[in-house]
Amino acid sequence: MRLTHVGGPTLLVEVDGWRLLTDPTFDPPGRSYSFGWGTGSTKTAGPALTPEDLLPVDAVLLTHDHHADNLDDAGRALLDRVPVVVTTAPGARRLGGDARGLRPWESTVLASPGLAPLEVTATPARHGPPLSRPVVGDVVGFALREPGRTDGVLWISGDTVAFRGLREVAERLRVDVAVLHLGGVRFPVSGPLRYSMTGRQAARVARLTAPRVVVPVHHEGWSHFRQGRAGAERELAAAPEDVRRRFRWVERGVATEV
C-alpha cells in the first residue's frame, strides 16, 4: 500500500491497483471560509500536489461535503472528473449525480475492469461533543478491504473525536493501517469543546484498534487547528512505547509505502 499526503485531509491511496483520493482540498492558501454557527477558518497552506499531478483517480472517499477544509472549491470541481464518489447519505443527496451515500456500517463495492473488487464500509464518526451532530452535520470514516476479508483493513477515521463509536471499529474490524484525522479543533464560540482528535486521543484510539501503522493527517494548514504535529507528539510521548512506535508522520507530496 502506498500513501501520498497532499495536505490537510487529502490523501492519495494506492492499493491493489486502485487510486483513491480522500477529502479533496486544492484551493490556494489565504482564503477564509465559514463553517456555519459562528465557526470558520482560514487556509494557511496550499496543497503539495495539484489535481493534474494525481489524476486519473478511480474514486473519491469524502468523509463529509459541507466543510471547506474537507471539500473546497477546487476539490469540488475535481469530483466531476472522478468515476465514483462515496460519502455520507446526506452528502450524496446534496452532491447528486452518481454519488454513493453510506450510513455507518453500510458498504459499497468498487469495481473496475482489470482490478479486484474493493469493499468500502462507512464507519462511525462524531465531529464534536455529544449531541453536536445537528450542528456539525453527518461525518463518516471509511474502512477498505477485499470483499469477504476481515483482516488487512485500511481505516480512515474522518473528522471525529474519540467516542464509543470508535470502539465498534475495534470490535468489528482488524485494522492494519489507520489514517487518523487530528488537529484538536476548537472554536472561540464553543470554548474548550473539541471537534477532532488530539494526540492523547489518537494514542487511545491506536491502543484500542491496534493497527500495525498509524498515519496522522489533517493537523496542519488551517487556522482552526489547535494542535499541530509538535503538540500531538508531545502528548504521544506519554503513551506506551508499543503505541508510539506505530505512528508514522509522512512527508507531504511524497509517495510512502506503509
Rank of each mutant, 00 (worst) to 15 (best):
G97M: 02
Q201D: 12
G30L: 01
V169W: 12
S107P: 07
A125S: 13
S196T: 14
E251M: 09
L49C: 11
A255M: 04
R103K: 15
S107C: 10
T63H: 06
G191H: 12
D53V: 02
F247T: 13
H64S: 15
G128L: 00
R94S: 15
L131P: 00
E52C: 04
A170Q: 05
L154D: 09
L102Y: 03
R19C: 00
H181E: 03
D138N: 08
L110V: 02
R164I: 03
P188C: 05
R145V: 04
V254A: 13
S32R: 05
V254S: 07
R94Q: 14
S112V: 14
G46L: 13
L54Q: 14
S32P: 00
L131I: 01
L182Y: 09
Q227C: 09
G75S: 06
V189F: 07
R2N: 14
L79Y: 07
F187S: 11
W105K: 12
R248H: 12
V217Q: 04
V213C: 14
P90D: 03
T150M: 04
G253I: 09
P24W: 13
V84P: 04
D23I: 00
D65R: 11
D16F: 06
A230T: 15
P51H: 13
T39P: 02
A255S: 15
L115D: 03
P28F: 10
H224E: 08
T4W: 05
E251N: 11
E257F: 01
P9H: 15
V179K: 06
R164V: 08
G158A: 10
L62P: 05
V250C: 08
R164M: 04
V13E: 08
R207C: 01
D138P: 06
A99Y: 04
A116F: 13
V13I: 15
T209R: 13
R186N: 08
I156G: 00
W18I: 14
V250M: 14
L11H: 10
T150E: 14
V215M: 07
A122T: 03
P216K: 07
G17W: 08
T150Q: 13
R234M: 07
L62T: 05
P188K: 11
L131H: 10
D80H: 15
V177L: 14
L49S: 12
L193I: 10
E241C: 01
R212F: 07
H224K: 11
R252W: 10
P29Q: 06
D58S: 06
S196F: 11
R145D: 01
H5K: 10
D98Y: 02
A255Y: 07
D98R: 14
E257N: 01
G184R: 08
L180D: 05
R248W: 05
V169P: 09
D80Q: 15
A74S: 09
P130N: 06
L110D: 01
F35K: 03
G7E: 10
